[in-house]
Structures are given as C-alpha cells and as structure tokens.
Design a protein around this nucleic acid. Structure first.
Lengths: 218, 218
DNA sequence: AAAAAAAGAACTAAACTAGAACAAAAATCA
DNA sequence: TGATTTTTGTTCTAGTTTAGTTCTTTTTTT
C-alpha cells in the first residue's frame, strides 16, 4: 500500500503531531527522513494525500492532518523493526566488575556490584558471567596484560589447559592455566618469572573460566 | 495542523479559560507569548478559528471559546518510548570487520563490509572506527595475540609509542608500534623474533591507531 | 538507456513581529 | 441615563523570517 518512505513520513508526522501538538515543517520532515532536500517531501505528501492518509491545507504552513494510519506495514519496515528488536535484545549486557584479580583475596570478598562493565551480548553464551580487572603480569605469555578486563563464566569445572579463576585455600584468587594431575592440581602462570604451583585438589576451587578479554588503550 | 505559535496560544487560552473562567484579552495573550504588539495575536486567532480550534464573537471583548484541542499522547508513554530509543542508541555499535592484518595487503583491498563486529558503545569516543583480526604473533609482547580482534580508530596522525595500522608502499598493512625518527619512521614489532623496520616517512601511511582489543576464548 | 529518487536552487507565499491609529465595547461616574 | 474614560479589539503598514512550491540538474536504480 505504502512505500517505506511514505510510511516513515506518515509515522513521523503522526508522532510529532501527537507529541508536540504541532505539525512538522518540510525541513523538519526532510531531516527526519535523512534527506538533504525538501523537494522530495512534497512528492511524498502528495502521494499520502492522494491515498487519503493525509489532509492538507495547500499553501499553508504546518497544516497537515493525519486522516488514518495504515493497518499494514511495508515489509521492509517489518524487517527493520525486527532488526531493531534484535539489536535491543542482543545489545550489551552489564556484568558486575568484581574487582582485581591476583590480589590474594577471594572474589566474593571484593565483590562490589556498583561497578559494571558492558559487554556485547555475543560474547555471552548461556550461564552467569562476571568481569575482573587483571593485576600483574603473571599471564603475560597468554596475552593477558596488567589492566586488562577479563570476562569470566561462572563454573566449577574446567578442562586441562583452560585458563581459570582459581581460589586457593578459600582466600587467594588468581587467574591461571589449570592442569589436573591425579589428586593434585597445577596452576600454571604464563610468565617465566613465575613458578607453577602444585596443590592438592582439595585446596583449589574453580570459580570460573576465562571467556573473553577486553582491553582499552589510552 | 498547527504552528508552534498557534499551539502555544491555544494552550494559553485554554489554560486561562479553565483556571480563571474568563478569556484572556489580546494584551494578556501578547504578554503571555512574549510579543510586543498585539496585532500578531489577531492573525494567530484567525488561523485558529480557520482551523476550527477556536470560536469567537467578533468585536466582543474576551469572547473566545475553545472548540477542540489537538490530541496528544500521554507524556508517560512518550517518556517510555524515549527510554527505549536511548537504550537502543547506547547499546552497541556495529563496526565493519575489514579482514586480517599483517597479511601484506592494504586494508581497503580486503574491505568486506558484510562482516561486522559488535562493540559496546562506551569503547567508542567520536570518530570513525573499524575492526581487524590479528594474524601472526608479531605483537605478542604487547599482549596482542593471533586471532584477536582489534578496534582501530581511523586517523592519519599518531604519536610516538602508539600502536598503529601502518600501510607501507600502499600495499602492505601491519599493526606495529610507531616511532618517528626525523625523516624516517620506525615500525616496531613486539616480538624478539621480528626486526624493527626503518622506513622513509614517505613510504608509510597511518591508517588508524589501536583503540581497544577483544578476545574470545573457545 | 530509461525511470525513479534525490538534491539544489529560485521563487512565492505565509507566518511572525512591530508600531500606530482607530473603533467598538465595557466600565465609571455625575 | 448619558457622557466620559478605560479597556479591548480591529486594521493598517512595513519589514523579517520561515515555510511551501516548482523547476532543473544530478544521482541512483533497474
């Protein structure tokens, strides 16, 4: 019934009429549709008048009236709205920033929910996540630098080779690569200046595995 | 249907009519709209009568009647819609993923706008951005690993020490730290297995500086 | 290559502002 | 009640700004 441009213009006119009580000018409509010249608006309005969606007083300023609204939307508009909804749904998630890791304190203790990090939803795939700020250079060999923000997926199981948040003796949390060795666990830093720690599995709790990393320069 | 002035006047008339029970005079209306002459009020009232919002007894004092008011959307609904729009606006940005860097081809040549990366809006601060996938390990010392996604801010100026996308001889693009040395430019990899290149400034074009980095595990 | 959409510019008309002069209505008062 | 004053509405003129119309050219699309 209507072209997408006609539909958008009609909706814009209707919206400004309802919101401000007064009719938009040709220039305002031109801006709303992202056009650089208002001559095109003329044609669109004529088409809308012809199709009996608008009434206008010719040669009067801001003298348009919406007669009716279409029951059907142009299919491209429907597609666009779907995209927008998806964008809204899939936009970002606000994750709690639990503080700095490798600082020797368990994560829950630091938990300060006030700070948040926003992360694109496509970095998140089911489950619960939180963020940490990296302190120190013990994982520099894995490209994890001092000051980086890491996104951690909450879990208490990990596979060999995963980089995990490990809580040792319920008091010291660090980000390390994990390797299971029978009844013991290896926490492997990725920096030759640090030594691998070998601990009985009972002393180590996994608080999550590394899911992604965000770094901002400057 | 109405111009802003007409709308304001109509609302003022309606308001004083409801509040005081009697119609404002031309001078009162003139003052209410901040005009210095009441002749303009006349024209506005004529327009409102013509559009059937007012009725008047000519040559009678304070003899206006409001016929109807433009129907507005409740402001609560407007506020809600604004919130949604803002949420949408502040969510993520879709940046073009221009391909892999350190592959020896200029970025524009690879440019394939179909691939996109979504990035939280707070990573972006004015200017134009694009994304690249890192190939190779020449910047591993700076925590930039093979497969990482880097967000680049378009610019052709950089300061010493910045990590930039440098185009050499219009054909080879790499991500390196830059240092200016008189008429020459140093492109410094962050990996001892690679050597710093020293080139005349004329052969090097900066295509952007590193703004942030995103890495996904698994 | 033809048709449609958009841009641009030029033109015309309407909207707005201001000031003043005047006429009609309303209020006041003898 | 009738005369007088005050308030209020009407009508000009004139200039400025804003807005609508129309036309030609350019760009995009098919």
């Amino acid at each position: 019934m209507l072209t997408p441009k006609q539909y958008n213009l009609l909706m814009f006119i209707n919206k400004t009429l309802k919101e401000t009580g007064c009719c938009p000018s040709f220039d305002e409509m031109k801006d709303a549709l992202g056009l650089k010249s208002k001559s095109g608006i003329h044609a669109l309005i004529d088409a809308l008048v012809e199709r009996n969606f608008l009434k206008k007083l010719p040669h009067k300023a801001r003298a348009l009236e919406v007669v009716r609204l279409p029951k059907l939307k142009p299919s491209s508009i429907i597609a666009e709205e779907k995209l927008k909804e998806e964008a809204l749904a899939s936009s970002t998630v606000e994750l709690p920033l639990y503080g700095k890791i490798a600082a020797g304190t368990p994560i829950e203790a630091i938990a300060n929910e006030s700070e948040k990090v926003s992360v694109p939803l496509n970095m998140i795939h089911g489950g619960e996540y939180y963020a940490l700020t990296i302190e120190g250079d013990s994982m520099i060999g894995a490209g994890i630098m001092n000051g980086d923000t890491v996104i951690i997926k909450k879990t208490n199981v990990a596979h060999n080779g995963d980089i995990v948040v490990a809580l040792v003796d319920d008091c010291e949390a660090t980000l390390k690569q994990i390797k299971k060795d029978g009844p013991e666990v290896l926490l492997i830093p990725k920096n030759e200046a640090y030594e691998t720690r070998r601990l009985p599995a009972s002393r180590v709790k996994i608080q999550g595995i590394l899911s992604s990393l965000i770094r901002t320069y400057h």
